[in-house]
Design a protein around this nucleic acid. Structure first.
Lengths: 206, 206
DNA sequence: GCAATATCTGTATTTTTATACAGTCTCACT
DNA sequence: AGTGAGACTGTATAAAAATACAGATATTGC
């Protein structure tokens, strides 16, 4: 599975989209029209490269004989992240508890990963120990006040409600037994690992 | 969507199987080979009939331009049931809020439908107003004590924790502001509409 | 009995598609 | 400076596929 050039990725992405949309692989001519090539051979050679690099399979001599390779079709659902060690990146392979067949689009802005909740600090928001949160990771966005976030303070990952006041950020629990975490953006390191967009509870204590 | 003859069903079934297997609709010639027709026109006319009867759609002038009609493609996910009127059957069309793309097997014994929660009677079990429950409907099974059930008492649908003692059944809320419901199996009508196997919270108050 | 429909055979004829061959131009290596 | 890959243009052509036309039987419902 070799690396693709940007152009090749673009073309592969379009083929995927097309196939998802109307469940019929494109012809060379259709690819040509989509990318405004003036020659069907432009499409042909791109397909050849994608096939050589192992991203698609071409059935020779059959109309629309393009199929995505197995490894391209799979990876359905979202990764479920368990206990994350302090300072380690969130999506590192070793924290992955598994992969759940959940449609990312089920959660309205779209979810990027699932996170297993530890502890009862958000109990009064209806989030219990062992629950699974759907999290949207958006590098750019700053959370709004009142939004529930997955934050990392000095290496430690925590789920709390966000409240900001200048350089002062409060990470608020929803359980009177826990105390708010005060973060000074100038003193402490704070990373937003995502915004909570959904909750899932399966098995266990229902 | 007219009725099909046995032969037509056979052919439609084969087309479905083919498409599921290698995600590429068949050509007339392939159909011909599969059924040992000696003329491509046998395939052509069958396709015409299937199209006329509304089971497939033929895109004219395109190779392999066969697609299954929407209703032929599967009903993926589970139905989401909203406010159920007293005495009416649970899965009646008019209470359906929609269909969510949720894998029934995500919830371990398998879910049959989704139910929108109304009210806060199960708040302390982490189930809030507006949450969606995944419910397993098992006609035969009697719930175990402590299991969370969707029950119908004298026509009214409610979600509570189950506790039985002979002919006396208690439907227990998980919120001190609510009172347990006492059901006498000899006096009252009680139907189990299912056992809660999962919880989903999307959008709204997170 | 007769028309309509279902299920085919047999033969053609276009269209679509796949795909070969011959180039051009750019850019990254070495 | 030369080589090779990437990204195409332009032109052909053979194979694959759709589809029209002209029948042949058999069954079924009036």
């Amino acid at each position: 599975m070799d690396e693709l050039t940007p152009r090749q990725s673009e073309i592969l992405a379009w083929i995927r989209a097309r196939m998802a949309e109307d469940s019929l692989p494109p012809t060379r001519a259709e690819l040509m029209r989509a990318f405004a090539f003036r020659s069907p051979n432009a499409a042909e050679s791109h397909l050849r490269v994608l096939a050589r690099k192992g991203h698609i399979l071409l059935q020779s001599g059959t109309a629309r004989g393009i199929r995505l390779c197995a490894s391209e079709e799979e990876e359905i659902g979202l990764p479920l992240i368990g206990r994350v060690a302090a300072g380690q990146p969130m999506l590192a392979e070793e924290f992955r508890e598994g992969q759940l067949p959940v449609d990312p689009k089920l959660f309205s802005p779209g979810a990027d990963y699932l996170l297993r909740v530890q502890g009862m600090s958000m109990r009064d928001a209806g989030i219990l120990d062992g629950d699974i949160l759907a999290v949207r990771h958006e590098a750019s966005l700053t959370p709004h006040d009142g939004q529930m976030v997955v934050a990392r303070v000095n290496g430690e990952v925590t789920v709390k409600r966000w409240k900001r006041d200048g350089n002062q950020v409060w990470l608020l629990p929803e359980n009177p037994d826990f105390s708010p975490i005060s973060v000074d953006l100038q003193r402490d390191s704070l990373t937003i690992e995502g915004v909570v967009v959904g909750l899932l509870r399966i098995g266990g204590k229902l």
